[in-house]
Simulated scan of single mutants.
Amino acid sequence: MKISVNLATRPFVELRPLYARLRLAMVLLVALAVGLGFALHVLDAKSSVAEAQMNALKAKTTQFEHERQTNEARMRQPANMAVLERSRFLNQLFAEKSFSWTAVMMDLERVLPAGVQVTSIDPVITKEGDVNIRLRVSGERDRAVQLVRNLETSQRFLSPRLSGETALTPSAGQGGPMAAPGGVVFEIMSGYNPLPEKTASATNVARKSGGVR
């Protein structure tokens, strides 16, 4: 009979599978570190390019600002002030000439309720080329309110708002019209979207064709 004697003080543990797993994990970590390092390098290169573009834009902006200040200083000289004022006057004149009264009246006819009269139209053209219109209308209050609602739904009149309301008073004997009961005078401020060039051209052609007929 054989008797096996184990003289080890601790049980035997197979470590080779554990070492294999550790080696695999180390390889994966190294691959991940290499990938992250490459991605960081790419991002750093992109950041350098973006920073260079930003510096170039800042340099151009500084150059243009310097040129603008130089030109403004030159135009403020006494010899050039007359030219500047004349340029402003001509630009304002051209802007006023480009305003189409016919188009405004046609647009108002579409939104004007019966019984409401337009007593004055005062267009104001801003430096940016936007057109604002101050309307003064008179008539019964409910119909004047309906006019404001119609303006709000129109594509030509932008952000209309009441700037004043006055009750009509009899003016007989002073050359003015008799005021109807409940009549008011409204002052309305509104932006105006002019007709596009194509639409205006088509309108002019249609009118000329109608005149020939």
Rank of each mutant, 00 (worst) to 15 (best):
E67I: 01
E67N: 06
M54G: 15
A45T: 03
S98Y: 05
V49I: 02
N91V: 04
R74N: 04
M75A: 14
M75R: 06
A73L: 12
F94W: 11
Q53E: 10
E65W: 07
A73Q: 13
F64W: 12
F89P: 08
A56M: 05
K60H: 08
F89M: 07
S47E: 12
A45E: 08
H66R: 09
A52E: 13
L57E: 07
V49N: 08
A59L: 05
L90D: 08
M54V: 02
V83H: 01
R74W: 09
T70E: 11
N91G: 14
A59Q: 03
E51P: 04
V83F: 10
E65L: 15
A82R: 03
P78A: 10
E51K: 13
D44L: 15
E96A: 05
E72N: 08
A79Q: 10
M81A: 01
A59I: 05
E51H: 01
K60V: 00
A79V: 03
P78I: 00
L84T: 07
M81D: 02
A50L: 09
K58V: 03
T62K: 13
M81W: 10
L84V: 07
F94S: 15
L57Q: 04
A56C: 02
A73I: 05
E65M: 10
T61V: 13
K58D: 10
N91T: 07
Q63W: 01
M54E: 12
E67F: 04
Q69N: 04
A82K: 00
P78Q: 11
Q63C: 06
F64R: 15
F64C: 15
F64G: 05
E67A: 09
F89T: 09
F99E: 06
E65T: 01
S48I: 02
A73M: 12
R88G: 09
P78L: 10
L57A: 05
A95P: 08
A45K: 13
F64I: 11
E65V: 11
K46H: 13
Q53A: 07
A45F: 02
L90C: 02
L90P: 08
R74T: 06
E51L: 12
P78F: 14
Q53L: 11
Q69K: 11
R68E: 10
M75H: 03
A73W: 11
S98Q: 04
K97Y: 06
R76C: 01
M54P: 09
E85Q: 11
R86E: 12
A73T: 05
V83S: 01
A52I: 00
N91C: 05
F89G: 00
N80P: 03
L90H: 01
E72P: 09
K97P: 13
R86S: 09
L93A: 08
K46V: 02
